Amino acid sequence: MINSVFSFYTACASFIGQNWSAGNKKRMLKSYRVSLIYAFIFGAILGGLLLVFGPQFLSLFATEPTVIDAGMQRIRIMAFSYAFSCFMDGSIAASRGIGKSIPPTIIVILGSCVFRIVWIYTVFAHFQTISSLYLLYIFSWGITGLAETLFFVVSFKKIWAEK
Results as ranks from 00 to 15, higher is better:
Met1Gly: 05
Asn3Pro: 09
Phe6Thr: 12
Phe6Arg: 08
Ser7Arg: 14
Cys12Ser: 14
Cys12Trp: 05
Ile16Tyr: 08
Gly17Ser: 15
Asn19Ser: 13
Trp20Gly: 01
Ser21Lys: 15
Lys30Val: 08
Lys30His: 11
Arg33Ser: 10
Ser35Cys: 15
Ser35His: 10
Leu36Trp: 07
Ile37Asp: 01
Ile37Gly: 05
Tyr38Ala: 14
Ala39Cys: 08
Phe40Gly: 00
Ile41Pro: 03
Ala44His: 08
Ala44Phe: 14
Leu49Asp: 03
Leu49His: 00
Leu50Tyr: 05
Leu51Ile: 04
Val52Gln: 10
Phe53Gly: 13
Phe53Asn: 11
Gly54Phe: 09
Gly54Leu: 04
Pro55Arg: 14
Pro55Gln: 14
Gln56Cys: 03
Phe57Met: 09
Leu58Arg: 07
Ser59Met: 08
Ser59Tyr: 06
Ser59His: 13
Leu60Met: 12
Leu60Tyr: 12
Phe61Met: 10
Phe61Trp: 12
Thr63Glu: 08
Glu64Pro: 06
Pro65Asn: 04
Val67Lys: 15
Ile68Trp: 11
Ala70Gln: 07
Ala70Val: 08
Met72Val: 10
Met72Asp: 01
Gln73Asn: 13
Arg74Ile: 14
Ile75Ala: 04
Arg76Cys: 05
Ser81Val: 15
Ser81Arg: 01
Ala83Arg: 05
Phe84Tyr: 06
Phe84Ser: 02
Ser85His: 01
Ser85Trp: 04
Cys86Phe: 05
Cys86Thr: 15
Phe87Gly: 06
Met88Asn: 06
Met88Ala: 09
Met88Trp: 02
Asp89Ala: 13
Gly90His: 02
Gly90Trp: 01
Ser91Phe: 04
Ile92Leu: 08
Ala94His: 01
Ala94Val: 05
Ser95Cys: 09
Ser95Lys: 03
Gly97Cys: 11
Gly97Asn: 13
Ile98Thr: 05
Gly99Lys: 03
Gly99Asn: 07
Gly99Trp: 07
Ser101Asp: 10
Ile102Pro: 00
Pro103Asn: 04
Pro104Gly: 04
Pro104Ala: 04
Pro104Ser: 05
Thr105Asn: 12
Ile106Val: 14
Val108Met: 07
Ile109Ser: 06
Ile109Gly: 06
Leu110Glu: 00
Ser112Met: 15
Cys113Asn: 06
Val114Glu: 00
Val114Tyr: 01
Val114Trp: 00
Val114Thr: 09
Phe115Glu: 06
Ile117Ala: 02
Val118Thr: 13
Val118Lys: 02
Trp119Arg: 04
Trp119Asp: 01
Tyr121His: 15
Val123Cys: 02
Val123Phe: 14
Phe127Tyr: 15
Phe127Val: 09
Gln128Thr: 07
Ile130Leu: 15
Ser131Lys: 11
Ser131Asp: 15
Ser132Arg: 01
Ser132Glu: 07
Leu133Asn: 00
Tyr134Asn: 11
Tyr134Phe: 15
Tyr134Cys: 09
Phe139Arg: 01
Ser140Trp: 07
Trp141Pro: 02
Trp141Val: 10
Trp141Ser: 07
Gly142Val: 03
Thr144Met: 07
Gly145Leu: 08
Gly145Glu: 06
Ala147Ser: 12
Glu148Pro: 00
Thr149Leu: 12
Phe151Arg: 00
Phe152Trp: 12
Val154Thr: 11
Ser155Tyr: 07
Phe156Gly: 03
Phe156Ser: 08
Lys157Trp: 02
Ile159His: 05
Ile159Trp: 01
Ala161Arg: 06
Ala161Pro: 02
Glu162Cys: 06
Lys163Phe: 02
Lys163Glu: 02
